[in-house]
Design a binder for these strands. Structure first.
Lengths: 340, 340
DNA sequence: TGGACTTACGCAATCGATTGTGTAATGTTG
DNA sequence: CAACATTACACAATCGATTGCGTAAGTCCA
């Protein structure tokens, strides 16, 4: 109907038109749901609601926030939205946020300390009611500072310290990979470990190394190379591994994109997958299955992770206490890691 | 220093502490840059600035907006951040926004009409100063409605109507692909065209069909299949093409991810690239070069596109008039389209 | 029938920053 | 030296929604 006619419909405008006081209108409109209406006569309530929707009234977020200092805004900080994994997590967050009547505000930190700080304070200036960090760093005190300001937050994808988090069980995922590689007879594995300050990278790596250690096989430190979780990072890390000339018989990339980068490197070194080298990724992104040699990987519930993170945050914002969650991963075996 | 001690430092607090009036403090702090200080004595200016930074003062965004009804918020609506292309465009937008002192607010529309409407009005409620749409639809009146509310906006990646936009020159990109395919002797091409309501899809497709037409070769309608710009969409579209059994000697996917999906389909049909079928993608995402058979594709300046879109929007918001931009694409030939 | 409630609202202060309109004090000019 | 212009601020209204407190009118029970 006559929706966006008037650029700004205020509470006073509809109150005046109805000949009643703005405060009454406010109470009626806000009491929606819970208590029907002890604030106005049933007939008045109807007239208010009707006119509000007819005029397309929406409360001025700024005025409301100024008065109440409450906000239904949630800030989300991720390393990088370009990363499919975090983009998917964010979609889960956004989806759940909408269901909870919250709005989200994302930004990239690129895992850089200055960005994290600047973006976080920008969000606090925007009076977010809570924060979700997807870029937690191990051994870093930044989050302690945030916690000290008692603004609710949860971590997603990566964890650190004792902060509430929703993550995949990356250690288990790593173990699944390790067991799989042993089962197909690979003993000389190299790990493209990802960023050293990310719990995901550390745990996935540890999962593999622990399994191998339990089988009496050590993985030397020079077989574990760190680098970004993307194609370029995977290629560089694989190059570093292959440069030595002592080729591994398996490469575990802690991320599918890094695995694809490694694929490029293997190809350039004349090594084929899985004959010479078994290749395993992580996350089961949609590309994994489409490769010429489909990629073995670990499926992680990225979307759900985002949803749960928002839900936990909403609970915390509502004053409830919650506990961290670790979601189970699943090994998906494909052609890139057949028996040698 | 003593940064986040006091949860809320207001203008009045620092004014009181200095024994002057809040209005003076406001003027001094806001006059930063342009006019040095005709609002207070040089010494007072210094005292104000010092105390402000010492106390970690930041204006309450809500109070300021309530008063001025101006906002340095920019709303960005994209089809889907999970799409690397749009995520990259968004990174360009965000980067430029920060340089301009603007904040951005992204959301996914998933190309659905109801979402576009709901998210847009949510942004308008948040009093955004301008909008950037990455999900423009051809033959759709939605943007006319927005234009009627005279809120500044620009389109990015896709265009429609006469609205200001920053896009790649997709028609040219399509022509480059067409000419390349002809030059390597492929005449029986199938096109995985992408979403029919996207200008990117339409123009890239037209570029190829026009070149072929000029060479006297028609591309029949059943060789042009529409679908989402992702791996699953590419796979499905390729399946549709190959189902007939009349195999093409080239497939042009209007998006790299769709090309990778097509790769999976070709593999399953026992067709190899480039021997049986030449494969060409679009966007030159980082994965293209890493494929076992590196992917020929068209490089488009996604990041710059985002930057320019924000810059044009900032100009419009500043009252200047601007014109649309079409950025030049570049063909990147790789192994997936060698001479047959 | 009078006091105690209840119903249905109205009043006015408040959140914090911004800005048009003063005004006292100082400086300048003819 | 008087008239006038600056300088350096202060006052107070304003943006729109929220909310503690107040109150007139009506209902109920003893």
């Amino acid at each position: 109907m006559g929706e966006s006619r008037n650029p700004t419909v205020t509470l006073r405008m509809i109150a005046d038109e109805l000949g009643i006081h703005p405060s009454t209108v406010s109470r009626v409109l806000n009491a929606s749901g819970s208590d029907p209406s002890k604030w106005a006569a049933a007939e008045t309530v109807q007239r208010i609601r009707n006119l509000a929707t007819e005029r397309g009234y929406h409360p001025n977020v700024y005025a409301a926030n100024l008065r109440t200092a409450r906000s239904n805004l949630v800030g989300v900080i991720v390393p990088r939205l370009q990363d499919y994994v975090l983009a998917t997590v964010y979609e889960g967050i956004e989806e759940a946020a909408i269901e909870h009547g919250l709005s989200t505000f994302v930004t990239n930190s690129l895992d850089r300390a200055d960005n994290r700080r600047a973006r976080t304070s920008m969000m606090i200036e925007r009076r977010v009611g809570g924060l979700i960090f997807g870029d937690a760093h191990l051994e870093d005190s930044f989050l302690e500072e945030i916690a000290a300001q008692d603004i609710p937050f949860v971590l997603v994808s990566r964890y650190t310290g004792a902060h509430i988090s929703v993550t995949g069980d990356d250690y288990l995922g790593g173990r699944l990979v390790g067991e799989h590689l042993l089962s197909i007879g690979r003993r000389n594995v190299a790990i493209l470990a990802g960023l050293p300050f990310a719990s995901t990278a550390r745990d996935r790596t540890r999962g593999v190394t622990d399994v191998f250690k339990e089988a009496g096989i050590g993985i030397s430190a020079d077989r574990i190379v760190h680098g970004p979780f993307d194609a370029a990072g995977g290629r560089a890390a694989a190059n570093a591994v292959l440069r030595s000339g002592r080729y591994p018989d398996a490469i575990f990339a802690t991320n599918d994109f890094a695995a694809i980068g490694a694929l490029g490197s293997l190809r350039d070194h004349g090594l084929s997958v899985p004959e010479h080298v078994a290749l395993v990724g992580y996350n089961d992104t949609p590309l994994a299955a489409e490769m010429l040699v489909p990629l073995t990987t670990v499926r992680s519930p990225m979307h759900v992770m985002g949803r749960r993170a928002l839900e936990l945050l909403a609970d915390i914002m509502a004053g409830q206490s919650v506990v961290s969650e670790h979601l189970k991963p699943e090994l998906i075996v494909r052609a890139s890691s057949r028996i040698a």
